[in-house]
């Protein structure tokens, strides 16, 4: 769906996307990273279960809510990738950590 124009010459960080190890350029947002990675969707809605993906990328639509490092409902477009970050699709209402 999306590609990087330049080969990532800058430093990259290692993250996992739905458990799969991926190298991502430093400074990229989670939303950008998962779009390039080709995730078909980033969450399913809590109402009907429909799949959704990033829409505005500027923090106003709240469509790109994902589970990042175990915390649900994070706006992927407002979070930058970090070394070791765990990025997961959010299913419906997500899970409560206890």
């Amino acid at each position: 769906m999306f590609k990087r124009l330049d080969n990532p010459a800058q430093n990259s960080v290692n993250v996992t996307i739905n458990g799969q190890p991926v190298q991502v350029p430093e400074g990229e947002t989670v939303a950008a990273a998962v779009l390039v990675h080709g995730l078909p969707y980033t969450r399913t809605t809590p109402v009907s279960g429909a799949p959704r993906a990033p829409f505005c990328l500027m923090g106003v639509c709240f469509e790109c809510l994902m589970v990042i490092d175990g915390i649900a409902n994070q706006r992927a477009c407002m979070v930058q990738v970090r070394e070791g970050m765990r990025i997961e699709c959010q299913q419906g209402v997500g899970e409560l950590l206890s």
């Binding site: 769906m1 999306f2 590609k3 124009l5 400074g27 947002t29 950008a32 779009l35 390039v36 990328l57």
Partner: peptide
């Protein structure tokens, strides 16, 4: 995506 990350539809 283009400005901040050099990412474009492929």
């Amino acid at each position: 995506l283009f400005k901040a990350h050099g990412i474009v539809p492929d």
